[in-house]
Design a protein around this nucleic acid. Sequence first.
DNA 1: GCCAACGTTGGC
DNA 2: GCCAACGTTGGC
Length: 152
Amino acid sequence: MQYWLMKSEPDEVSIDDVMASPKQTTVWFGVRNYQARNFMRDQMQVGDGVLFYHSSCPEPGIAGLAQIVSTPYPDASQFDSNSKYYDPKATQETPRWISIDVQGTQKTRLLPLAEMRTIPALEDMVVLQKGSRLSITPVTAAQWKAIVKLLK
DNA sequence: GCCAACGTTGGC
DNA sequence: GCCAACGTTGGC
């Protein structure tokens, strides 16, 4: 059991979108970074906890809690020449990118990035490190616990 | 829109 | 395999 922070642009998929989906479940697609992909492929397990983070928006921060509800499978958008996520080098035989299903468990108050930076228990969070851009980053159990407490 | 930081590409 | 050039991310 591990914990993750996953970034989504609310213009694309917000926590409200996830909670409004059937079974509150959404397909996580479009990851085009190898490190993030490898986390999905090699480490994520069904049941892992997810901090749902809104990025590239007026108020970036954690907007909800979620969990991983599938094992990895090929990301369909890599094969779709009409998709902005199309990857001409990917083939059905040797897919390069993967998806995973994420189920929203709770929309929370927004925990803004600016507030996260003021909390000593969170100072080592990967997402808060200078230059950190990864869309999927690991979260420790202690960090998860501290955040859940803040969101109550 | 700016720009720092990081990732990827491709010539050599 | 190096590294310059370019592209992307994402907060501000």
